[in-house]
Design a protein around this nucleic acid. Structure first.
Length: 410
RNA sequence: GGACGGGUGGGUGAGUGGCUAAAACCAGCAGACUGUAAAUCUGCCGCUCCUUGCGGGCUACGAAGGUUCGAAUCCUUCCCCGUCCA
């Protein structure tokens, strides 16, 4: 560990700054890198993530990938699980107070998180910490003392609080505590650099100031752009439903990637692939000059991303499947199989609900009337259709654009 | 503690006693068009039953009660939120 051969500072900077939104202050990062090269001490770089959902999605990977870049450069990557702060709830970007998560939920989420994180980070080189380690043990006195280091006016500077105030929306007091408590993470970790999405800028800046209050050398704020979600409008988030989970089935991931607006793919190329800025620029030029079809460029992107998480083979298969189902309008090679016992005939609407292809019978009826249901690639016209289950057979059921199920009666 | 204003479907937000399963917009879904999309156009968009009909039943406008033939709309109590005052 002591014999780190660090790359020259300029080279490191170039590699690290790739795709970054902001580095505050940039000069300080340079200094820190210089002294690290000199002393042979790696920088302590951390990323704090609240396990608010059991799955991480592509949006999270942007900043994780950056942490990995620091790891690549020989620095200490610290992945901080905000198991305590998740229970407070980050007010960032929230137009309302979010309901706190229970301890159990957080624990379950945290577990599944790590496994996914290691798809990007090198597990052997990653320092994993949980902020309940110290936040869970603080006395009220210590909390009060911590709060004494910051001013309300400064807290209210932030956009989400201010706009809520202006619009007469509630702000719960504990929400004010969030940036302060997470600042204590930075204090305990004695971090040199903290990574985050641009929306975390305010929080990370507070962390920096609090570190100074505690007599530490303040960390560098390193932010990454926010990945726009599949709708091409809002940020990728689970609650908006415009996300790509990294553990989703390859075909699903692929389909989702393809549903982004064309223009968005460049930002994706930059933030969620390992392509160099130069390589991306070249690709873009090809498309603009008409040498490469935008759809093919997008398919490459999708294949690369799927491949990165699920293996190259899965990526290729997903691409083939997409080609087959959507471009050639044929049934997928592999559809999920559902087995049904032989029995009396069943209404198609009931069957669709049973197979969880739709949420209710009313919805099933609507879907059929809208010509969105197919059996063995033939559109079903009759909403009252009954399915014969009297003897063993097999058929392919399609509900809507994407949902296929191979039903096996036995 | 007081005064005032407010809580409507996934979201924004209209609606002040029947014509309201609730305008409009957004999101979502389906179909058409395409190059997968996006954009655009058309339709759908609480649940359920069947004889699938401008059909029947049930549930829904913060909660619980009440008035009424009839309530998202009126009354009472409670909960929650905001603003101002203390």
């Amino acid at each position: 560990m002591t014999q780190h051969k660090f790359r020259p500072v300029e080279e490191q900077l170039e590699y690290l700054k790739k795709g970054a939104a902001e580095v505050i202050p940039e000069e300080e990062l340079k200094q820190k890198l210089e002294s690290s090269v000199k002393t042979g001490e790696p920088l302590r770089v951390y990323l704090g993530v609240d396990p608010t959902a059991p799955d991480i999605h592509l949006g999270h990977t942007v900043v994780l990938r950056k942490l990995k870049h620091f790891q690549d450069m020989g620095h200490t990557a610290i992945f901080l699980v905000g198991d305590f702060s998740a229970m407070i709830g980050d007010p960032t970007g929230q137009s309302e107070t979010r309901p706190p998560l229970s301890h159990e939920q957080v624990e379950v989420n945290a577990k599944t998180y790590l496994a996914q994180v290691y798809k990007i980070l090198d597990s052997k080189k990653t320092e994993v910490r949980y902020n309940s380690e110290w936040l869970g043990k603080m006395s009220s006195y210590e909390v009060v003392r911590l709060c004494g280091h910051y001013r309300l006016a400064r807290m209210l500077e932030r956009e989400d609080f201010r706009s809520r105030l202006e619009n007469s929306l509630p702000i719960a007091v504990h929400e004010l505590l969030y940036p302060l408590l997470t600042a204590y993470d930075a204090v305990m970790l004695k971090s040199d650099v903290e990574l985050g999405a641009t929306e975390q800028k305010f929080n990370i800046l507070v962390h920096r100031e609090i570190q100074r209050e505690y007599g530490l050398s303040p960390q560098v704020v390193f932010t990454m752009p926010i990945l726009v979600g599949l709708d091409g409008q809002r940020k990728m988030s689970k609650s908006l439903g415009n996300y790509v989970g990294i553990t989703e089935p390859p075909a699903e991931m692929f389909g989702k990637m393809m549903s982004i607006p064309d223009e968005l793919m460049w930002s994706y190329y930059e933030l969620v692939t390992d392509r160099t800025p130069l390589g991306i620029a070249e690709l873009k030029k090809e498309v603009e000059e008409g040498k490469l079809h935008p759809m093919d460029a997008k398919m490459r992107l999708a294949e690369e991303v799927v491949g990165g998480f699920q293996g190259a083979e899965a990526g290729r298969k997903a691409a083939e499947n997409f080609q087959r189902v959507f471009r050639e309008r044929r049934a997928p090679e592999e559809a999920p199989v559902e087995k049904l016992p032989v029995g009396p005939p069943k209404k198609l609407t009931a069957l669709l609900v049973e197979l969880k292809l739709v949420a209710s019978k009313s919805e099933a009826e609507r879907l059929i009337k809208q010509r969105g249901v197919e059996i063995n690639e033939a559109c079903v016209e009759d909403a009252r259709k009954e399915i014969d289950l009297s003897k063993p057979r097999e058929f392919l059921l399609r509900a809507g654009k994407k949902k296929f199920v191979r039903v096996v009666v036995e």
